[in-house]
Design a protein around this nucleic acid. Structure first.
Lengths: 360, 360
DNA sequence: CTGAAAGCGCTTACAG
DNA sequence: CTGAAAGCGCTTACAG
């Protein structure tokens, strides 16, 4: 297909601007101008005839600019750095899928990295990303104290937050507070007066807001939650297991459990069952995120649905706006409740003693 | 800390080779030589005194070479492209975590992308990666027919396969055939004569080998598996659900089920339960990969453990070897069986009729 | 041991 | 409308 011997290809045999220039008998400058129409505003890049010839050649030869050369010259890499707590958390994996899709559609590439919510790793990985000259960052592991992102902002690094917000920095999040309220409303409707909360990490706005929305709504209904019925946890199965065990050890005998994360909800299943509680019968369990697994569990899980792909997509949009110097107001996506078999009404006996010892 | 006005910083204020050259009063050439000792073999880069001064300055000023400049000059990017079927599959997310870690340790950066096992996307994403001038590829979505990777090989693109093998291309995989045998041995030990297999995607070596190992081992025990008891599936919960439903519809009434993927195993739980089978009591269920969730399920899942992080790490090692022109023999990591509560002996009644209609 | 020169592939004022 | 020149930041023979 491609002619054997092209002039001025690069070391790897790739077509360069010079290849096209030689073939169309103009200067590389002209080729560059034609192929980068965005730059020009007033005068045209070249005569229609020349432009057409150049474009056709570029297309036929599959010319793609060398990103190193472009990056070096323009000081812009079309690279986005992504910080995730961990990609093996499917919530972030899905956010990343959305990010990647949106980035690809805009000709951007992404570097993803896992910080494990460890301050040192967060710092190191961020520097690596910056050393690679990314144009901006999408930060999915922001801590609620905002310290690190404030610093970054101070250094003039462009970024947007995703999933978690912090301070006034631009972010794309789920309306987690609303999500917490939805969960509360659902359980109130079912007559649950004594819910417990598996509250997630204390440093993540997601867990904080979901818990606040939930407890606020209960407070509005005149039902206060004892502190010992709200237990922090990691955002994974093991975390949910520990938290549930902790709750039960503290004497909680809830009729409902709200876990701010589906994996934590799944992790709670074991201890709850061992305590003689039957999820979906005498105990209602509600998770958060509505990961694909939630619907497919042996006992399908009621969950607050958050749009993870969409969050990733919009985070890229927002970063692009920000990089273009346009205003980038934060966005908050509305979640909704998906009711499944893990929900059930409160047992008719009404509220139970909190002093009952658990089995195990 | 850093002096206000450094000479010859780049547009973004970054320290360049020229900054250090000016400050240490030598030519940039010398600085480059000192900071890239790998290149030199015979003569020294500079006098000990000069070298020390340069290195100290570089350290103090936090000099990092501009990757675009280096990339342009050396035609080497220190970039690795990673193709995954989908990162929201935790198996690949974990492989990627291993990859990222090993790559970081070697100063490499990774671009990850999801192909969804779609040939067109695989092609497009690969070209995008190549257009970004990655040094090599780690391919996690190879199809067993090897067509695409053969092409890539023909084009001289350096790559290694991970998780799935194809043809004779260098790969880091789990010994899936052995894993299948281990599952079979376990179920044979428990007296199961009539197992069914949820076999995964027919185009992935993982599913193929695991199934082959399993059925071969059963054949050696004189027990042949009817074709209708082996059902292909997607590698996710929904896939396992469908496959299990299909098996039961075909009249299978197994005493054991081997799913070549943990998610597929989890997906099978629903239909099995609806058919009146009690996993862990009258039906043994065995998965594959031993994802973290497996141990934490309400009914913990017996699974064949594969080292996902390690696979990712070694894939990077192998690619680095390959890029250095050194021999890169494929590696096959040995899996092991982890027995949990989803295992149980075959019911004493022995083999059951395959004609029994299921409930649903 | 050190420096001057060339060049990787591109873009961007600046002329004409 | 088109081209010549300079330069992004680095590395690599090649001199001396």
């Amino acid at each position: 297909m491609r002619p054997r011997q092209l002039p001025f290809v690069d070391t790897a045999g790739r077509v360069t601007l010079r290849t096209i220039a030689a073939l169309s008998d103009v200067h590389v400058t002209t080729v560059s101008r034609v192929l980068n129409p965005a730059t020009r505003s007033g005068s045209r890049a070249a005569s229609p005839k020349t432009s057409e010839r150049i474009r056709r050649l570029a297309r036929e030869l599959g010319y793609v600019p060398n990103p190193h050369a472009t990056g070096l010259r323009t000081q812009q890499s079309n690279l986005v750095g992504v910080l995730a707590p961990r990609l093996s958390d499917v919530v972030f994996a899905m956010i990343y899928e959305g990010l990647e899709q949106a980035a690809g559609a805009r000709g951007l590439h992404t570097f993803v990295t896992n910080s494990r919510d460890d301050p040192q790793q967060r710092r190191d990985k961020t520097e690596m990303l910056l050393d690679r000259h990314v144009d901006g960052l999408v930060i999915g592991d922001a801590a609620a104290d905002g310290q690190f992102v404030d610093e970054l902002h101070g250094r003039g690094v462009p970024f947007v937050l995703v999933s978690r917000h912090a301070g006034a920095h631009p972010s794309v999040t789920c309306d987690d507070y609303l999500g917490g309220r939805l969960a509360a409303e659902h359980l109130l409707d079912l007559g649950h007066e004594r819910p417990a909360v598996i509250a997630g990490e204390p440093f993540a706005s997601t867990g904080i807001d979901r818990t606040a929305g939930f407890t606020d709504r209960y407070a509005e209904a005149g039902l206060a939650m004892p502190q010992t019925w709200v237990c922090h946890s990691h955002f994974d199965v093991q975390g949910g297991r520990s938290a549930a065990a902790e709750l039960l050890k503290n004497g909680a005998r809830p009729t409902a459990v709200f876990a701010v994360n589906d994996f934590a909800a799944i992790g709670a299943l074991g201890p709850l069952r061992e305590a003689g509680l039957h999820v979906g019968q005498d105990l209602a369990l509600v998770g958060f995120n509505d990961i694909p697994l939630a619907a497919e569990l042996p006992l399908p899980l009621t969950s607050v649905h958050s749009e993870m792909h969409e969050m990733g997509r919009q985070a890229v949009d927002l970063l692009v706006e920000r990089l273009a110097g346009r205003p980038a107001p934060s966005r908050r996506l509305s979640p909704w409740l998906v009711v499944r078999e893990s929900s059930c009404p409160a047992p008719r006996s009404g509220r139970q003693s909190t002093a009952v010892r658990t089995l195990t």
